[in-house]
Design a protein around this nucleic acid. Structure first.
Lengths: 268, 268
DNA sequence: ACAAAAGTGTTAATTGTACACCCATGA
DNA sequence: TCATGGGTGTACAATTAACACTTTTGT
């Protein structure tokens, strides 16, 4: 190992803390912050949340408009610095609620951590990205409040000219979040996270169709879903028909966490 | 949002930096470290690497024995602090090489980030875990050197009484790494990362059998693999037979990044 | 010649796909 | 009674799983 360069890089998970601080690592009260133990320039830790929902048959992502440089007027994911005593998951929920007023119920999972040294021009910031999925929310959350402007953008518009310009490395984060969501639809019952309970099988099918951009055969979809135990459970009631058509049966989310066999996309 | 609590938590990805520093965020040279921009207690960022390999038909993980508290004499994953100007991926490769002498070629991917506030008793450390897969390495890397003792442990022994005690939250990290590897075998050609080139289809099959703990039918496995374009490419030679039996054809890794259709485990 | 491992062939069972058809409702 | 969407039935295609059989080597 080393040829004299900083031993502090050896710390987490193994020996070496006492080399960095100059005293035995074990004989001290638990430190409250890393700065007390590891001197030198620090790295900030933040979370960013990719919140996806389904609105009018389109997959949409929540973004807020930046009020100041860098990337002024561009659009950014909700997020912010993690507090010293705060768990990462809790931080993601907090940022979502504080910044957009979205109740942080629903599905939330860690996506990936982004740490390119130049991803934020102001400082070294490592960001833990989260993926959140919610049913359609009646009000565009956080719009016309005095806080940052927040709005939904259809993911379809993200690359196009009339779409938003995303700040930082958020284009890559959103793309990764989309891909995660799309592929998790295949082998988990996650599609139901986009549906408000109770929902119909057509609601559920439209989630897949919006995410994959291809129509699915309703009869076969129905059989697939119902043959997977624990995907959905019937609620014993029917939806009010809207504009003709037989009323559909209603379901709620089941207890399954994985789909066997998976519900595979046709082409790739 | 806020009722007076720290606006600095609002920083990354949106407005608020100037609130934390007291000057415009855009009108300054790029900061070299977050500490200059965001005062207050810092969070340390580290990487930990779950390095898996196949030895004698058993899936093994590389761990080093801790020489000092906390968790003295327990076993820990190779890892350490990320440098201020260092990319996360580069840091993972560096730690692996410095600490265990393992050439960081081969597959390396980000696994997940672990950030429970109490996961390191010394300080708040957020750790970005990586998963590395390598073919069997002739010498137990880093063994009988003056550095930290490093050795392979069969993952089978991890839970048992005669197995190692893992430090910190490393049991969970290793478990997550195993599960990631096991499921990626299904839908990516990652199994070949465990094989030294050139390899036989029997070598490849043994990877699946070790990871999933169940035998696979050799004829059907062969057809599956060969029918997936880009999984493996024939090298045009035969292996030397070992102790009787027809010599097997040799292959090397192909260019495919995904398996369609996937190679699914029988039961779950 | 026999054992062992690689590789080929064949068949039955399972699963996926396409689409015809019936059901229940609003207009 | 027609249009619309929900739900059932069914035949065909594709894939998988199981295993018999042939090939090529070492002993």
């Amino acid at each position: 190992m080393g040829d004299g360069d900083d031993r502090a890089s050896d710390l987490t998970g193994q020996a070496g803390a006492e080399a960095a601080t100059g005293r035995p690592a074990g004989a001290q009260p638990p430190a409250r912050g890393a700065a007390e133990v590891f001197p030198g320039p620090a790295i900030a830790v933040s979370v960013d949340v990719v919140l996806l929902t389904l609105r009018a048959g389109q997959l949409c992502v929540l973004v807020t408009q930046r009020a100041s440089p860098p990337f002024q007027d561009d659009w950014a994911l909700p997020g912010g610095l993690v507090r010293v005593d705060e768990d990462l998951d809790a931080s993601a929920r907090r940022q979502l609620t504080e910044e957009t007023g979205v109740a942080a119920s629903g599905h939330l999972e860690q996506l990936r951590t982004y740490g390119r040294p130049d991803r934020d021009p102001r400082a070294r910031v490592v960001s833990v990205a989260y993926l959140a999925l919610l049913p359609n929310l009646p009000p565009p959350p956080g719009a016309d409040r005095d806080g940052p402007r927040a709005r939904w953008w259809p993911v379809e518009d993200l690359g196009s000219a009339d779409g938003p310009t995303l700040a930082f490395d958020h284009p890559a984060i959103v793309a990764d979040g989309m891909e995660r969501a799309r592929s998790k639809l295949e082998y988990t019952p996650l599609a139901a996270a986009f549906c408000e309970e109770p929902f119909t099988l057509a609601d559920l099918r439209r989630v897949y169709e919006a995410a994959w951009g291809a129509p699915l055969d309703p009869p076969n979809f129905r059989r697939k879903v119902l043959s997977t135990t624990g995907f959905v459970v019937p609620v014993g009631a029917r939806a009010a028909p809207r504009g003709g058509g037989r009323p559909a049966e209603l379901y709620r989310r089941g207890s399954a966490t994985a789909l066997h066999p998976p519900l595979l996309r046709r082409t790739v």
